[in-house]
Structure formats: structure tokens, C-alpha cells
Amino acid sequence: MARKKTDRIIEGHDLSFHYTVYDSEGNPGERRTALDGVDIDVQQGQFVAILGHNGSGKSTLARHLNALLVPDGGTLYVDGYDTLDAGNVWKIRQSTGMVFQNPDNQIIASVVEEDVGFGLENQGVPTADIWKRVEEALRAVGMWKMRGRSPNRLSGGQKQRVAIAGVIAMHPKCIVLDEATAMLDPGGRKEVIRTVRELNRTENVTVILITHYMEEAVFADRVIVMDHGKVVMGGTPREIFSQVEKLKSFRLDVPQATLLAWKLKQRGLPIKDTVLTIDELIEALNHGAAENDLTQPVSR
């Protein structure tokens, strides 16, 4: 079907989706709402974080973004293609790639570079091009040196970077990471986040990051909060994380630095804006201290 002209990589309107629960005999029973009237718009090149408690609908939404699921109601255009049109599926999957939670479930080949080339082979890309694109992709995630290794000897963070390379090799416009850092150690988490931020900045790849680690969301251009299948909050990380209590009501949290700043502010320290990172907190405190410094005129 024809592509709709748009600069928005993701354009969803009033999306709804229901899972049907089957009993032990396989008879369809109750229908559970997973998405309920979701509107989502993402510009090409944006970095969007999606937060929400377990069961809030984040992963269901993510699976719509490359047409693994299609909406029961509403419309969703990915890169201008309607996901409801089955003829668009391959174009959509090429423009939007997914990285899942478990590093061991998404690597299939026995050598790193072959794994990264798997998707391209399936598409019938000429061999010479495959090698070129595999090299580009592995260099982009900093795994080129490990190209000949067996994936089962890699750390969790390295495996996820290989999975990301497999997606990048397809030259997608958008990468969706569905809790891709959940099973990693702190070093691995940092590797993955650094890699996707770099891709976002230098290659203008749209990044949709689904995570339970609030400190990973502070790097996003925009944060979306989901609850019971609905989008309940949206804004910049600063706008979102300034609402500590509201986030808690959605079973969420704020980064530790933000929470510490919030507690200090409640105790009367002059911290003006919402703090997102460690460095911002240090600056806010030192700035506050400087304003009260002896070198400044003391107002009485």
C-alpha cells in the first residue's frame, strides 16, 4: 500500500488492543484490555523513553511498532505505512527493529558476525554488501574486534550490543528496546545506553527505550508514562521527574539524584529546578552555597 507522506516515524491514533484469555480446553474466555485509546507521535530522530509498571501495556505497545501485533482499534502508521495492511509488514520491520530483554533469546548464530548478517541474508542482500553492512554495524556498537567470537562467550552487555548491531545492519530508522537492559549488570547497562545514545546522536536513529531504570530515561528527549493501557503522562524528563508523588502513584520512581534533590528541597534547601543527574545536583548545591557565600553582599 502507498506510503503516507510524513516526517513522523510513528503516528498512532486511538490505539486499542485486547488479549483473549483461553481456558485449559482452549475455549476463548474473557478479553483483557492491554491498550486503551493510546495516541503516540514520534518524530524521526527523537529519543523517547516509555515508563510504566509491569502489565501497564508498554511491551504490547512496543510490539505494535514493528507490526508483531496490530491494533484492534485505531490506526498506527510506522514510517508512513499502515500496520493494519499485511502487505506493509516487511517494510515496517525493516524500518523499525526490536531488541528484547533476554540476551540469550535473540542470538542465533555461532559466530558474532554471522549473527549480525542473519537478517540481511534473509532479505537477499548481495554477499559483498552484507559484509560491508555487518562491519559498519559492529563498528557502530564497538564490537568489531569481537566479530569472530562465539556469542556464548560474551557478557550480557556485549550480547545486547550484538543484538543491536543485528538491528542496525538492517539500516532501520527506528530501534525499539524492550527492557533490553533489565538482565544486565551496571557496566552492561551503561554500554547499551551509551551505544543507543550514540546512534541516536550521530546516525539520527529514532530510539524508543522501554525501561524500569529511571536513570536511563533522563537522557531521552521525551518520556511517556503508561498505566492500565493508557498514556497517562508525557513530557520532557524534567517535566516528568518533577512529579515525584504522581510517579509513585503509577508504581514508578525517580532517579536517586532526583529523589535526593527533592528531599533536600522539602527540607528547605534552595534547589530551584528538578535535578536529573548527579552533576546537576552537585551544581545546584554548590550554586546554592555560592549564593550564600561571604564574598557576596549579605542582604539583611
Binding site: D185, P186, G187, Q256, A257, K263, I278, I282, L285
Partner: peptide, 29 residues
């Protein structure tokens, strides 16, 4: 070794470095 300290530890360490008389070994908010 692929780990980290809690964010709070970083905050306290940096404050101590910039002249604050705080204990850098504090680990809770």
C-alpha cells in the same frame, strides 16, 4: 569490574571533592 556505586555515593564523593564536609561513605538517600 563492571559494577557501580549507588548514585548517592557518587553525589557524596563529588560534594566532598568540592569542599563539602560530608562523609563520602554514605550509601542511602
Amino acid at each position: 569490574v563492571g559494577l557501580a556505586a549507588p548514585q548517592v555515593s557518587y553525589v557524596m564523593a563529588k560534594l566532598a571533592q568540592t569542599g563539602w564536609d560530608v562523609d563520602p561513605s554514605v550509601t542511602t538517600i
